[in-house]
Design a protein around this nucleic acid. Structure first.
Lengths: 143, 143
DNA sequence: TTCTTATAATTGGTATGCAAATTTTATGTA
DNA sequence: TACATAAAATTTGCATACCAATTATAAGAA
C-alpha cells in the first residue's frame, strides 16, 4: 500500500479521484456525451427541474459560478434549457429537455452500475456504516 | 438530507469536495502558503524525496502533467528544488528545501487536525471499517 | 553507427470547483 | 420618487486533474 494512503484524508481524496475517472470512462463509453459533473446536475433535475440556478446550487451543493458553466454545456448539448422566470428578469428557470428525459433510465442505470462497481465486495452492513460515516463527514466539515 | 446524497457515489464525491474546501481554509489560515494539492506532494516527499517526477507520480497517484504544475508552484514558493539527474538529461530529481523540512512538523500536525475534524464522532471500529472500504473502492476502480 | 523505439518532462486543451468582482434587476427605505 | 441595499447570474482568476501531443534524450536493433 502506498505511503500517502496511511492518511485517511488522502485515502478519501484518492478514492474519489478514481471514482471520478471511472465515471468519466464509463460515460465516454456510453456515448451519452455527458460529463461527470453534468451527471450530478441531471440526477438532481430528474427529481426536480424548473428551478433557478440558485435553487439548483443548493440541491447539488455547487457554487452558482460553477453551475453557470455546467448549465452552459448542458444547454449546448441539448439536455436543458434556460427559460425566463416570470416577474424576475434576473433569473432563469432550468428545465429538462425531452432529450434529457428520454435518456433518464439509461443514465440512472449507468449510475447504478458505477455504484455497484464501487461497492463490489462490501456487505450490506458495511455499506450502511460507510454511508453513515460519509454523512457524518459532510456534517463535520460544514460546522 | 439532500436528494442527490441517496447516491453513494455522489455522497463520496461531496464528502471529498467538502474535505478539500476545509483543507484549503485551514491552510489559508495557517499562513503556510501551501495549497491542498501541494500538501499531498510534500507529505509524500517527507517520506522519500530526491526522486524523479515519474517516480513521484507513482507515489502520489497523479499524472506527470499534473505534477509539473504542482512542482512549479512548490519550487516558486521555495519548498522544493529540481536538480539534474546524473546520466539522464531528460529528468530531474525533486528534493525538499530546508524551508520545507523546517515546516514538516507544522504540516503534519495540521493534517492530523484535519483528519480529527473529519472523523469526529466516529469510533475506532467504524474508522477501521471505513478505511478498509475506501481501500477496496480504490482497488475496485483500478481493475 | 544509424535508425527505430521508448522514456521523461512539459505544454495545451478541457472539465471541475471556489472566491471575488461585476452586471443587471429587485427590494426596502427615506 | 430617489437612493441604498440585496439578490441572481455571470465573468475572471486560480488550483486541481486528465489526456493527447510535443520536445528532448536514452536505449535497443539493424
Amino acid at each position: 500500500m502506498l505511503q500517502i494512503l496511511d492518511s485517511m484524508c488522502i485515502l478519501l481524496a484518492k478514492s474519489e479521484q478514481k471514482h471520478f475517472s471511472y465515471t468519466k470512462k464509463m460515460l465516454d463509453q456510453s456515448g451519452l456525451e455527458i460529463s461527470p459533473g453534468q451527471l450530478v446536475v441531471l440526477y438532481s433535475l430528474f427529481t426536480k427541474d424548473n428551478i433557478s440556478i440558485s435553487e439548483l446550487s443548493k440541491n447539488v451543493l455547487l457554487d452558482n459560478s460553477t453551475l453557470t458553466g455546467l448549465i452552459d454545456r448542458l444547454e449546448k448539448a441539448g439536455f436543458v434549457m434556460r427559460i425566463d422566470t416570470p416577474n424576475d428578469r434576473r433569473s432563469y428557470q432550468i428545465i429538462l429537455t425531452e432529450k434529457a428525459k428520454s435518456h433518464k433510465s439509461t443514465i440512472l442505470q449507468l449510475m447504478k452500475q458505477i455504484e455497484s462497481k464501487m461497492l463490489e465486495g462490501s456487505s450490506e452492513a458495511e455499506i450502511f456504516m460507510f454511508r453513515s460515516i460519509l454523512q457524518r463527514i459532510l456534517i463535520n466539515f460544514n460546522s
